[in-house]
Design a protein around this nucleic acid. Structure first.
Length: 939
RNA sequence: GGGCAAUUAGCUCAGUUGGUUAGAGCGCAUGCCUCACAUGCAUGAGGUCGAGGGUUCGAAUCCCCCAUUGCCCACCA
């Protein structure tokens, strides 16, 4: 009593979450030492940005990882979940830069060294935020192994990998066309460019033939000029044009190939070249070629040996190569160029044209393709094995459709631009000798030039793409390049859990780096989840302002509610909508568990958990055996689902089991015994009662036969079963609801320090599918009776008596004590009683179930109109059913080809329906004839 | 231009290899403050499973086509 009284009626997460998290962490329950004798399970956490804040995406991602980690830990695996954070080059640099601006200073002013100091200070100040937030979520990761992508070890791994790839020619430096963000002031890789379809224009511009005088007198006389009309979406880039291209077979332009035209505004003579890349059917069939600012033109420029004229500066403005337009912004230059062309009469037309504009994925600024000298990773040799690993099943995507996305990307992969014009990051480990020009790359900082012995060395100014260090995460965090025992036990990791948005950024790159440097894939499985959407199905984003802060949710509902909500209600890989009603429903579920446990505690205060061996089946009631069977069935199914990474289904199964089966049925059925009222179903009788004739001939005389065991013994058994199922369910729920389950479990009698280290439930042989089917039938019967009660408005306080006729004695036995509001009539299995009731439909309401008939004497409760309506309804339904069945049985296809037992079954059903129709018609008649009804007996 | 997902009750979603009567939560209706829980209990109403073909004795489920929505990829200027 004291225990249950100490628990409030509703679960209060705020009161317990911190307590248990600290308890777990301080006792080292999350930490794992290497033990090569145990089977390993390992996950590396996708490192969140060190300066970031937890959003719902993180919450879901980490909740999923936590479920797996806790599940595997309970299963006895040596489980490592390794956390850490990412230095997030551009994002962090932008934040620090902003901070400097607020202080009235700047990057340039404080210099590289000063900036790095500020960035590290920023990291020290805010880096703990997100890890603290992960703790609030309940993440059971091993914080003693927390890593940071720029810590010493990870940096050493970066150096080693870079040097190795460099030595083998897999990293090279060169002038290529790259993507430039003029706001972030750095290059970005191809996948960091987002293509957004936008309405734009296609301008048709005439480039006059070069043999005509295009001097100063161009204006006003343009109409007379021949030449060629090109179509472009970016007219300002013409300032950097070096050619016009047409398809070699295009008849319209044969006469121009090899000739020259004049580039208007710049008055440059440029050739007309033939290249099969050009699509004759698009635009005018003639393309202006700007090798310095368009990837296709760049390639074509290489093919034809064309000059690259760069016309943009770092800020995206026209540079001195743009002649009179120098200094203008891109936008402004476009306006002026178009206006000037129009004035010259060279603008032949403008049409609307949607086209994809590349934007920086971080800041949304339009990305300009530029030719620039950068560092690249040669992808072809690395991509090949990475594709093989997935094709051969070495790495498995869950759901597997994501494997195709991965493979598709790698098939068409281009070299990876890894240099960034930033300061915050891993500086490229290459030095240039200022004396002889040698390029030096090494794991150690060089002190002098190995070629000329000169000491004037200057390190490359750029840093590496953040994803370069992320790509090494699965092994750099475990100590590579040292041969650590962590690597030995935990690499390859078991599964990577992440969102589909970073398959390219991260997953693919980890795979090829792992294969290259560890000789094995970094993980066996990749579990991909979707995004969190708002209630309308919109992506949550900062710009839309529809984001929800997971910490506010935790404050209000608790971490477990948030977790469970994020983990259930959808299928793997699909997006998940997030809205308040779902949270409420989940909170109610937690409260249900809470109260079921309070009920349990009332009855288990001085209970000794001696173990399951006390549960031998001969002292169990049918209800006991049923719930134990269901519990084991659920445990098995949940285990299977978790092993298949179907967390949503596992959670749903637990929800339904706990609420519907444990709470709504078992606890209700066990109450009489738990309260010492001693009603106990007669399983001993059931064991003897055969299923021979369908109607038991034994003389069951009500409750006398039921109490073959003392109320005390019955209570003891019920308590043991209740404990077994409740405690076991808490263990099954623990991966989903760590805080709630720990809090309850600690109140229950228990062995061990914490539920999180208890063994995962194992089957103990209570599964009995026949019994489960019987119980299902019983539930149907009880529903039918309650339905009758509801239809006739029987007061809830009044017990309802029912007669139950069924072929199966087991079901009838289950019925005893199954429901507090229903009891079986004495002698109700007597055939004569059945006939009697069936023949007096005005005195009894009935329901026919599969092989079972139920009657409830009405005892004067009959409401004639209601009954009549109901029968009419039933008649209509039965009529329909008869039509359907009769039609089916007339179908020769069905009769001849379906299995004989199916056909026979249908025939039986038809017969039953016809019989029922007849019965209903008679009852209707009787009712119509009845004047006043006499109660059957006095209840 | 390709590819992927989704389309099932008023809303949000399940539905395992084709097989009795298609499920849940929320919402709704009716009745209940029954000694674990009103964040609850009981009962009920509500579905031509996006449209159209096909395979099959039998299709929400397999095949084809179409439509709508969302997402990803793509160097048609």
């Amino acid at each position: 009593m004291a225990l249950e009284a100490s628990l409030p009626k509703t679960y209060d997460p705020q009161a317990v979450e911190k307590k248990w998290y600290d308890f777990w962490e301080e006792n080292g329950f999350f930490s794992q030492t290497v033990d090569l004798g145990k089977k390993p399970f390992s996950i590396v956490m996708p490192p969140p940005n060190v300066t970031g804040v937890l959003h719902l995406g993180h919450a879901m991602d980490n909740a999923q990882q936590d479920v797996l980690a806790r599940f595997k830990r309970m299963q006895g695996y040596n489980t490592l979940w390794l956390p850490g954070t990412d230095h997030a080059g551009i994002a962090t640099e932008a934040k620090v830069t902003e901070q400097l601006a607020r202080e009235g200073t700047s990057r340039e002013e404080i210099g590289r060294e000063g900036f790095m100091e500020r960035a590290w200070a920023w990291k020290r100040e805010y880096g703990g935020n997100i890890t603290g937030q992960l703790r609030r979520l309940g993440a059971s990761c091993d914080w003693s192994r927390e890593r940071f992508t720029m810590d010493e070890g990870c940096s050493a791994a970066v150096r080693r990998v870079f040097a190795s790839l460099y030595e083998r020619g897999l990293i090279y430096r060169g002038n290529y066309i790259i993507n430039w963000c003029s706001k972030c002031l750095t290059t970005i890789s191809d996948i960091e460019v987002e293509h957004v379809e936008k309405p734009g224009h296609l301008w048709h511009i005439r480039y006059p033939a070069a043999d005509q005088d295009v001097g100063e007198g161009l204006a006003g006389a343009a109409r007379g000029f021949a030449g060629v009309v090109v179509a472009t979406t970016r007219p300002e880039t013409m300032l950097g044009d070096v050619a016009v291209a047409v398809h070699p077979d295009d008849e319209r332009y044969q006469h121009l190939i090899g000739k020259h035209v004049i580039l208007p505004l710049m008055n440059r003579k440029i050739p007309v070249i033939a290249d099969a890349y050009v699509d004759s059917s698009f635009g005018t069939g003639a393309v202006k070629i700007t090798p310095a600012h368009d990837p296709n033109d760049y390639d074509m420029g290489l093919r034809h040996g064309l000059e690259q004229i760069s016309i943009l500066d770092d800020a995206g403005c026209i540079n001195e190569s743009g002649g009179p337009y120098g200094g203008l912004s891109g936008q402004e230059a476009r306006r002026r160029v178009v206006a000037d062309l129009e004035a010259l009469g060279l603008l032949e037309g403008v049409e609307d044209h949607d086209h994809a504009v590349g934007q920086c994925y971080r800041c949304g600024t339009v990305v300009e393709p530029r030719v620039s000298r950068q560092w690249f990773v040669r992808m072809a040799p690395l991509a090949e094995p990475a594709m093989e690993a997935v094709k051969q099943g070495r790495i498995e995507f869950v759901p597997d459709r994501f494997a195709r996305i991965y493979l598709g990307w790698l098939e068409n992969i281009r070299d990876w631009c890894i240099s960034r014009q930033l300061w915050w990051g891993h500086r490229i480990p290459v030095w240039y000798c200022q004396e002889c020009g040698a390029e030096i790359c090494g794991v150690e900082d060089p002190s002098s030039c190995p070629q000329c012995r000169g000491a004037r060395l200057e390190q490359d100014k750029d840093v590496l793409d953040t994803w370069f260090s992320s790509a090494l995460w699965p092994f750099s965090t475990m100590g590579w390049p040292l041969e650590t025992e962590e690597l030995q036990q935990f690499y390859p990791t078991s599964v990577l859990v992440t969102g589909r948005d970073i398959i390219f950024f991260w997953v693919a790159r980890m795979i090829f780096m792992g294969l290259e440097f560890m000789g094995d894939a970094p993980f066996d499985k990749v579990m991909i989840h979707g995004l969190i959407l708002d209630r309308e199905g919109q992506k949550m984003s900062k710009t839309l302002g529809n984001g929800i802060d997971p910490l506010e949710v935790i404050d209000r509902y608790g971490a477990d509610t948030l977790r469970f909500m994020l983990l259930t209600g959808n299928t793997p890989g699909n997006d998940l909508r997030f809205y308040a009603e779902k949270l409420d429903a989940t909170r109610n579920f937690l409260n249900k568990i809470w109260n079921a446990s309070r009920f349990g505690l009332m009855h288990l205060e001085d209970f000794e958990p001696a173990g399951g061996e006390r549960l031998s089946s001969d002292c169990l009631s049918l209800a006991d055996r049923w719930i134990l069977s269901r519990y084991e069935g659920i445990a098995e199914e949940v285990t299977r689902r978790l092993e298949d990474f179907d967390l949503g289904e596992a959670g749903r199964l637990l929800y339904e089991f706990v609420w519907n089966e444990l709470c709504d049925w078992y606890i209700e059925m066990a109450k009489p015994r738990l309260y010492g009222r001693g009603v106990r179903s007669g399983e001993s009788v059931a064991a003897e009662t055969t299923e021979t004739t369908g109607m038991s001939e034994s003389q069951e005389t009500g409750e006398a036969a039921e109490t073959s065991e003392s109320p005390e013994a019955a209570m003891g058994t019920a308590r043991t079963v209740l404990y077994t199922v409740l405690e076991g369910s808490l263990r099954l729920l623990h991966p989903f609801l760590p805080f709630l389950t720990e809090e309850i479990w600690q109140h229950l009698p228990h062995e061990g320090e914490t539920v999180m280290l208890r063994p995962w439930p194992q089957p103990a042989g209570f599964r009995d599918e026949k019994l489960e089917k019987d119980m299902e039938a019983l539930i149907e019967v009880i529903r039918a009776i309650r339905n009758i009660r509801s239809d006739y408005g029987v007061a809830p306080s009044r017990k309802i008596k029912a007669a139950l006729f069924c072929a199966d004695a087991g079901v009838r036995d289950l019925m005893r004590g199954a429901s507090a509001d229903i009891e079986l009539m004495a002698g109700c299995d007597d055939m004569t009683v059945l006939d009697d009731l069936a023949n007096k439909p005005e005195q009894a309401a009935g329901a026919a179930l599969d092989g079972i008939q139920v009657f409830v004497p009405l005892r004067g409760l009959l409401d004639l109109d209601k009954e009549r309506l109901k029968i009419e309804k039933e008649l209509a339904a039965a009529g329909e059913e008869e039509k359907r069945l009769a039609g089916k049985l007339k179908n020769p296809g069905f009769v001849n080809k379906a299995p004989a037992e199916v056909v026979a079954g249908e025939r039986e059903k038809l017969a039953a329906v016809q019989k029922r129709l007849e019965l209903l018609r008679q009852r209707l008649l009787t009712i119509d004839k009845a004047d006043i009804l006499q109660p059957v007996d006095q209840g």
